[in-house]
Computed example of a mutant assay.
Amino acid sequence: MARPALLFLVSLVLCLSLYVVSCESSLTEAVARPKPAPQCEASHAFCSSGVPAGIPPAPLGIDIFSVYLLRIPRGDAHSDCEDLDCHIIRPTLGFTSKLTNQSYTLAWYPLFGMWNSMVPHLPKKNNNSPVWCKQGAVCVSRTARGWRQPYITQISGDVFEQLMQWTQTVNKSNLDYGAWTVRTWHALNATMWFPVNDSATFVQRACQQLARFGAIINPGQTLKVTRPAIFSRKPQRLGTASQIFGPTGQPALAEKILRFYRDFQPNQSTWHKLLSSLDVLEDLLLRRSLYFYHEGNYWLLPPEFPFVHFITDYLTL
C-alpha cells in the first residue's frame, strides 16, 4: 500500500471520537416513527431554539417568500448542539417574508445528536441486540444566518404553509439521519449500495416538494456537497437483529458485530482508543470486512482500496 494512502487511513481511524460508520436508511416516509428506546437520549434538547409547535404561524396567502440556499454551522443557529455537531457545515433552506421581513431556516438534524446517529448503544448482555438511535428530524427556526447561496425561487404564503405541513409529516415518519455514502471505487458510473439521508438530500427533497406545490425552481440549480465515502464491493446481507442476536440467534456472528461496534464507543481512554484503532485497521487491511446496520438488517461490507475518502457530489434541485 502506498505510504500516503496508509497515512490517511491511520489518521482516519485514530479519529474514532469523530466518525463511525453506519448505513443510511431509505427515504420512505410512509413508516410511522416508533417510540424511541430509553437509551435514545441526547445530551441537549433537539431544536430548542425552533419555532413553537415546530411550525410557524400561517402566513397571509398574499405574502411572498424568497427561497435560497444557506450553508450554516449548526452552532451558529442553535445553542443545543454537541461539540461535533456544532462544527459541521450543513446546507439548509432559507426563507424570507416580503410582508414581515421575517426569516426562517429549514434544516435536517439528528434527533438524538450526531454521536447517537452513528454509534449504537451496546447491550449489557453480550448476546442481546444493540440499540440504534439514528432518527433524523426537521428543525424550523426564526433565523437565516449563514453563507447565503444562490436564490432558488419565490413562493406564495399558501405554498410556504403547505411546505411547513409537509415537514410535520416528515417528523412523524421513521427516517434515519445519515451522512456516509457507500459505493464502489469508480470515478464514473459508481454503484451506490445504500442511499444517503443527510442535510443535502433533505434540501433536495424539500425543493422537490416545492415543485409539487407549484413553485418554479430556477433551472440549472445544483447543490455541491462533500461527503465521507466508504468504498466497497457488493454487500452481503447477514440477517435481522432477531436472526443474529438472542437465544435463537447466531452467537459467533453476534460477537463479531458487537466487537466491531465496541471499537467505536465514546469515552474510551487513550489506551483503549489506540487498541480500537488497531482493531479497525485489522478489519480493513487483514479481514477486509466491516459490519453495517441498514433498515433493520445487518450487512457484511467487503471494503476495497482506498477504503475511505471524501468525495464531491452534485445534487440537482
Rank of each mutant, 00 (worst) to 15 (best):
L122T: 05
A215F: 08
P150R: 07
E161M: 13
S269W: 02
P303F: 03
T316F: 09
A32N: 07
P57C: 03
V51Y: 03
F213N: 02
W193T: 02
S156P: 11
L27D: 15
R33S: 01
Y293V: 13
E24S: 15
T96V: 04
H309S: 14
R90V: 09
Q39Y: 07
G214P: 00
C207F: 03
G75V: 05
A2G: 05
T167S: 09
N116M: 04
I244M: 06
A187P: 01
M164N: 13
L16T: 15
R237W: 10
P228W: 03
S199R: 05
G249Q: 04
P219V: 10
H272D: 12
N197G: 10
F46Y: 12
W180N: 05
L315Q: 00
Q154I: 01
R142I: 11
S232W: 07
P123W: 12
K98G: 03
G113E: 03
I155E: 08
M192R: 07
N174W: 12
R183M: 14
P57R: 13
V138P: 01
P235Y: 12
L301R: 08
G113N: 01
T28M: 14
T92H: 07
F310A: 02
Q243G: 00
Q204N: 11
A58V: 09
L223G: 05
Y291C: 12
L99T: 06
Y293G: 10
A190R: 08
S173C: 11
Y19L: 13
Y109L: 12
T169M: 12
T143G: 03
L70I: 09
I64H: 08
L122Q: 02
G249R: 00
K256N: 14
T169Q: 14
T240C: 04
V21D: 13
S289L: 11
F65V: 14
W271F: 14
S277Q: 11
L210R: 07
S43K: 12
Q265H: 08
G94W: 09
L286Q: 14
G75S: 06
I89M: 11
A45R: 14
L93F: 13
T100H: 10
F292K: 03
P303H: 02
R183A: 06
C23L: 10
Y68K: 03
K35L: 11
E304A: 15
I62L: 07
F245E: 00
D279S: 11
V21Q: 14
R142K: 12
R259K: 12
V140M: 08
